[in-house]
Structure formats: C-alpha cells, structure tokens
C-alpha cells in the first residue's frame, strides 16, 4: 500500500551568489536592534507531500521534483528533510 510522505525542501542561493534581500534584513537587525548578526541569507522552503511505497522511493520522487523544476542548479542548492 502506498503511503503519504511529507518533506521540507530548503532552497538557498549557492554560497558565491549574493542575496540582496538577506543583506538588507541583516542590516536592519544590526542597525535597528543592535543584534550581532554576522550573516543572514533568505532562501525558500517547499512543504511537499508525495505518495510512495517506501521512504527511499518518496525521497527519490522529491529529489526528482527538485532537479526537474523546483531548484535551478545553476544558482541554487537544496536540502531535503523528511518530517
């Protein structure tokens, strides 16, 4: 019987790609709230459910979704976590 598996995908720009949104938010936290924030990068998360016969198969489906559409490997990297 296939089961539903639930994952969170975390997508971030690669380390060498500038993130202007994160830079701006960091400046606000430092400047307005005096917090010692040394780095802040904003990515996106995708909350996804898939049907599969095993956790391994479910993860493979999610990774395929990332590689086909959800992630642009030229500028982004991602991590998958089952929840």
């Amino acid at each position: 019987m296939p089961q539903t598996y639930h994952f969170m995908i975390d997508i971030q720009y690669k380390g060498n790609v500038r993130d202007p949104r994160g830079e701006t938010i960091r400046k606000v936290l430092v400047g307005e709230y005096n917090l010692p924030v040394t780095s802040l990068r904003i990515g996106k998360s995708v909350n996804i459910e898939v049907e599969a016969d095993s956790p391994e198969e479910a993860e493979a489906i999610v990774r395929k979704a990332c590689e086909e559409l959800l992630v642009n490997p030229v500028v982004e990297q991602y991590e998958v976590r089952m929840i």
Partner: peptide
C-alpha cells in the same frame, strides 16, 4: 543561454 538572472541588488 548560460548563467542566472536574479533580483537586482537594489532590491
């Protein structure tokens, strides 16, 4: 075409 197009640095 090679590369990426991301948000302007000005935001």
């Amino acid at each position: 075409l090679p590369g990426g197009l991301l948000e302007n640095t000005s935001g």
